[in-house]
Amino acid sequence: MKKNRRLMYYIIAGIIVLLLPVIVRNEYWTVVFVRVIINMIVALGLNFITGLIGQMNLGTAGIYALGAYGSALLTNKTGCSPWLGLLFAAFLGLVIGVALGYPSLRLKGVYFSLTTIGFTMIVQIFLNNLTGLTGGSQGVQHIAPFTLFGMAIDTYVKSYYLYLIFALVALFIANRIVNSKWGRLFRSLRENSDAVEMMGVDIASVKIKAFCVCAVFGTIGGAMFAHFYRYISPATYTTDVSMNYVLMVLVGGIGSVPGTLVGAAIITILPELLRGLGEYYLITFYIIILAGILAFPNGWIDAGQRLITRIKSHNTVKQKGA
């Protein structure tokens, strides 16, 4: 009975997600939803490092930028398919994962975060100044869209559906990892890495693997961004962006996959809902997020679940009374 009801909720949620562009029928909001999907994928990756292993990675913007530029430049310069660009971005992710993973073995806490901020800044400086390759601050234009069975994915609605498939694959993989032996290993590293080593686990290789997964999700998200907007510039990839990804991981519920999805949705959609406030929208947004973190330290999902059980128990008490 309980299982059936749960399945029903999932089906309803699935139908809503599937019909979203049809229900909304508004280009602006469709773009927002595509961004939600891309952010979900990137945040799912970051969840491994920041959510599970517990190291504050503020280099997501750099990872994301390299993915976007890698894929965009490869397709633009060689004229190859964006799918190859996507593969190349994933490969770049592996390289970044190893490169960022090694310092993380020696640096802890705030020092690691500073290193990752530095990484983002270096990436941005390179993108701005390697004008021959990256186009400098002008960015890269006319990036080819994805094609599927000979059909160019060139409208917002088409992109929404293609990216939805990407997101489902990413969700499946992330879920498998988080709920496997690996996920538990990552969590135990956050609690006590010495004890993990005493169990015969090579911590260094585990951490680097986690960084690779994180960076691959990030670069793939970047490539999706590039082929969706079809124009990228270095100004997009600031440390603010990295902060927002950390917020996505924190707000929904640290370490959990549904929490990350909810977090990505909140952090992407909420500012758009607040646009009506004009120049006050960002400050309102951050006040809401801060208040949310203070009020629900275990994340919005946990808060929601508590509310539901409370209403339920309230109802049963009422029934008993009557």
Binding site: R184, R187, E191, N192, V196, M198, M199
Partner: peptide
């Protein structure tokens, strides 16, 4: 040095 936020069973399985 146990994993205090995990259950006893999870600790043993680890």
């Amino acid at each position: 040095e146990i994993f205090s936020k995990m259950t006893v069973r999870e600790n043993l399985e680890m």
